[in-house]
């Protein structure tokens, strides 16, 4: 399997009063056409890693890497024009909360068509047909209504699906999903995951799934990176999560309450200063 994305020694630093603070410190991974999970607690640098791949590190942060390559294109030297041709068309990102990431004064339909207008050379009618097909593909029951609706007229689950439709309508090769289901109810969550799952297996898309939910990631992804304090402390096959070697991964697994009952009090994660070095 040839790599779709290669990341070597990715570092992201933010300037502070006491010199630059590195929030991501030397992350390496390659991604094929598979589902890769990135798990970690808040502040572990998982979202910043995802954003850096799209060149979206918020200023004044600075992302550097020894290698950052997407399908043979060196992203470190990419010009604004190169970025425009990649973002949205070949790689796109689904954000956590549809309430904040959809444009509130544009209908869903216009937002989807906008994505197509920049990247495709189709007629309006063909674009619209494609947008409607995509809304159907993400299991929206009444695509005609949703197409005309404004974001506030949709529920959280619908908004998130519309957002996924928007990101996928240009058929990207790489999708970065940053906590795409955290704001959703569990049963809706599973539906959204099923949509993503089908896209990976049918279109051969690469997916980076960023989440804090270890249980969800282990059941959904092929491979998992566990991040702690800006570093990948462990990389393993999702099916082997129960055999995790690193005490941090083990601690994260054990501190989850289980329906089958378990230890009371719950085991608490004992942090070791050595993990961060």
């Amino acid at each position: 399997m040839n790599a779709l994305l290669t990341v070597k020694d990715l570092r992201i630093a933010f300037p502070s009063r006491n010199g630059p603070v590195e929030v991501v410190r030397g992350v390496n991974f390659t991604l094929g056409r598979e589902r890769l999970g990135i798990v970690g607690e808040s502040g572990s640098g998982k979202s910043q890693t995802g954003r850096a791949i799209l060149g979206l590190t918020p200023s004044p942060g600075l992302a550097t890497a020894k290698q950052l390559e997407f399908d043979g294109i060196d992203l470190r030297q990419a010009s604004p024009a190169t970025w425009r041709s990649l973002r949205g068309a070949r790689m796109s990102m689904v954000m956590q909360d549809p309430k904040f990431s959809l444009n509130p004064v544009m209908t869903i339909g216009r937002q989807i068509l906008e994505a197509l207008k920049f990247h495709g050379r189709e007629s309006r009618a063909a674009s619209k047909a494609r947008a409607m097909a995509m809304l159907e593909a993400v299991h929206i029951r009444d695509p005609e209504r949703v197409f005309r609706a404004y974001p506030h007229e949709l529920s959280g689950g619908m908004g998130q699906r519309a957002m996924i439709a928007m990101m996928l309508v240009s058929e990207p090769d790489l999708l970065i999903a940053d906590e795409p289901t955290s704001a959703l109810d569990v049963t809706v969550q599973i539906e959204v995951l099923r949509i993503l799952d089908n896209l990976v297996s049918e279109r051969g898309m690469g997916l980076i799934f960023i989440s804090h939910d270890l249980r969800l990631v282990s059941s959904f992804c092929d491979r998992v990176l566990v991040m702690y304090a800006g570093k990948v402390v462990e990389e393993l096959r999702a099916s082997d999560l129960a055999k995790a070697q690193h005490p941090y991964t083990q601690g994260l697994m054990n501190c989850l309450p289980k329906i089958e009952g378990g230890a009371r009090p719950l085991p608490v994660l004992q942090r070791d200063a050595a993990w961060a070095t």
Binding site: E41, S42, H212, D213, L214, G251, L252, C255, L256, P257, P265, L266, P267, V268, L269
Partner: peptide, 11 residues
């Protein structure tokens, strides 16, 4: 809260 912090608060 994060899972590890959740465990502490539940305890």
């Amino acid at each position: 809260l994060d899972a590890s912090i959740q465990a502490e608060v539940l305890n």
